[in-house]
Design a protein around this nucleic acid. Structure first.
Lengths: 207, 207
DNA sequence: CACATAAGTGAACAAGTGTACACATCGTTA
DNA sequence: TAACGATGTGTACACTTGTTCACTTATGTG
């Protein structure tokens, strides 16, 4: 009757995950979403939900996995575009901001999840951030930057950088999607933050 | 019948706000709380809710106001106890951690609200953080610290400091309330972050 | 092709939800 | 004391919610 097209495997699963993201993108908080609401948004009958997810928390966990892919794509692009260490910070922040705009709902979900309801989602996001930080540390080593820092101190620095950027996310996501002026402000300020951190790291010595 | 005691003005109002905080303290997300749920936890009939709040968002806003008081108390204590600039950072972080532990639910609410559902609550918390940062800038000026920084750069630094501390909140709140070792780790790491930032600020020069 | 399995559907139910209304009770002020 | 406004209560209604069950339909493998 309503099957106007053949069934693609995993299609409904995607539809459900996208539906959740869409609702988050519309300003809703993930923790307040219900199964029926999501299925409705996806144009699917409530029962279908259980074919793919055990609960909303489960859906959240699978979203975290996809979030990981988004972050990896972002890193790859950053590595490709940031060739010389000259404008390193400025360009990286630019790429980050661009990705945050392009995948707004995803990053909203991430920001929400950090203080979210599900312990598992929280831990998943935290883990993605740790991975991101460790990759950043690798890159800095590869570029022969901050060579005077011990491994532990470099990790600490990268952790601080990632946190700072993550916090900028909440700024970015709380302003209008196409307020270019404000977006520019956030980018500028974030760049300054990172510059200050790296100045500190440059002079850092363990005691 | 059930009025075993005389009515104190605003008693139910407090009970409702405390109930919401209690639920948040138990791991629930504020955005997922319902009116009935809160009134049940408060031991009050659902209708009473409307005598004090227009909606859940409204309750959230009033919680933000109280949060402001908590923060101000914390600042006052910090100012009283941090006499010499010597161990300034370490002691301040200590006081912060202690307050976060003592008012766990409040700070949980704050961390949630930063990426929360209600625009108004979000803005309220953001505003509290701005105030906090500006007070910090005042204190640093008063202590004759970072005198080489322009007002704008000092503001920027303090903003970064407050963000960093706020992010540590999510670390702190995601670990067990009485895992003293982990708490110590967070305190240590946060202290390092701030030290690195201040090293950067010490060498900072506008360009 | 046949068949097992995965994916989607619709109806149903008990429980929970927000909100409205009319009424009771308290504290205060005239 | 009388009357009033603020606060608390009980009942009711129309929805929404999560989950279950039995059923149909598509897909891929032997």
């Amino acid at each position: 009757m309503a099957d106007r097209s053949k069934r693609r495997p995993g299609e409904t699963r995607e539809k459900l995950m996208n539906a959740a993201l869409t609702l988050v993108g519309k300003g809703r908080h993930f923790a307040s979403l219900g199964i029926r609401e999501v299925t409705r948004q996806a144009g699917v009958v409530p029962t279908s939900f259980y074919r793919h997810f055990r609960s909303m928390d489960d859906l959240g966990l699978q979203l975290v996995d996809e979030l990981g892919l988004v972050l990896r794509r972002m890193m790859r692009e950053a590595r490709a575009n940031v060739l010389q260490a000259d404008k390193l910070i400025e360009e990286s922040v630019g790429i980050f901001v661009a990705h945050a705009q392009a995948n707004r709902s995803f990053f909203l979900f991430m920001a929400q999840g950090l203080a979210g309801e599900s312990r598992a989602v929280q831990e998943g996001i935290r883990s993605e951030m740790r991975f991101f930080a460790s990759e950043l540390a690798n890159d800095l080593r590869r570029l022969r930057l901050m060579e005077h820092l011990s491994d532990a101190d470099l990790d600490m620095t990268c952790d601080l950088v990632v946190r700072t950027v993550a916090f900028s996310l909440t700024d970015l996501l709380s302003i209008s999607e196409d307020d270019d002026y404000q977006i520019g402000q956030v980018r500028k300020r974030t760049t300054q933050f990172l510059q200050m951190i790296f100045v500190g790291a440059g002079r850092w010595q363990s005691d």
